[in-house]
Nucleic acid binder design. Structure first.
Lengths: 162, 162
DNA sequence: CCGATGTTCATGCGTTTGCATCTACCTCAA
DNA sequence: TTGAGGTAGATGCAAACGCATGAACATCGG
């Protein structure tokens, strides 16, 4: 006899259903966050870059940044250029690699990130905190970390260490 | 024993950490999916619209669609217009509301969604399936569904204009 | 040392997006 | 019925994006 047809579906369906649920949660919450009146100085995408740079303890490369930001390389290059023009990001040539650029926040950029981040974090805490309990948040973090931290099953090689 | 202050601070961090982890997972997987050679006919954003329409059993409104798609209303309006020009989506005036439009897939649109969806679902199943076990996927789905919140929590610290 | 190949970021260009605004329609109170 | 106010979607326009490609540098085999 076949498996029960109640809620039993294949692994593929499980994977797709969970991914769809994640996408929905992402879209719904992003829309709520975008509606907050805190993006008058930096846009959400710009904040994404500022936040990623703020997490680093030393300058990072553009390509490195591009792994965390959902933008094409040219688009990110120009976004960084705009942030540099506004004095929020500093672009310096990489002494170890003449092709590369080393990106870091300026003091103004760090301050801007803190200011926007403080307000945005409150929204995140309110929305996520209202939906999930402590243990659920911990579980969600663990699962999404695991989801992101996978090696590619097929494709070209990627340097993990240095 | 009480720890109100610490609890609130801790919850805020929990919420922000889990949200950041979700964002990272979203960005990382989206980049992998985008790299797949299956978007030659419809882009990921177009597919998002086709998929959302495919899930509906009857025509939906643009604003309704816009709640699921992470685009501004004008951008979505024009995206739908392009899809309609390509014969994938049908736009009909809503008999119940002269302002609205009723959106539905054409037969070609449904077929296109199925074709792209089949290939994309394989990628999703491979990536997500490789990272999480069955029970983990079920848990992730449950948590992200809860996070998306069919109903907004009452007693919001926002504007109660309802 | 040299040329071939790969990598990193920037630039040209057509397309798409967001913001502000407009039009058309709905709702409701007077 | 009518007009004020609200809502749904479309449109003008500048900004931003993705794709293809270019320029500069790195790497490696011969």
């Amino acid at each position: 006899m076949r498996g029960a047809t109640m809620t039993r579906r294949g692994r593929g369906h499980l994977a797709n259903d969970s991914w769809e649920a994640l996408l929905t949660a992402h879209a719904v919450l992003m829309k709520r966050f975008a509606a907050a009146p805190i993006w008058d100085e930096v846009s959400m995408r710009e904040y994404d870059v500022l936040y990623t740079l703020a997490k680093q303890d030393r300058p990072i490369r553009l390509g490195e940044l591009n792994r965390n930001v959902l933008l094409s390389q040219p688009a990110l290059s120009r976004l960084v250029e705009r942030l540099a023009d506004r004095g929020l990001v500093e672009r310096a040539p990489d002494p170890a690699d003449g092709r590369g650029v080393r990106l870091a926040l300026t003091e103004a950029g760090r301050e801007q990130q803190r200011r926007t981040g403080r307000r945005h974090a409150a929204d995140v805490a309110r929305e996520v905190g209202a939906a999930l309990g402590d243990e659920e948040m911990r579980t969600l973090e663990a699962l999404t970390r695991k989801l992101a931290g996978q090696d590619r099953p097929s494709g070209e090689a990627e340097e993990e260490n240095r």
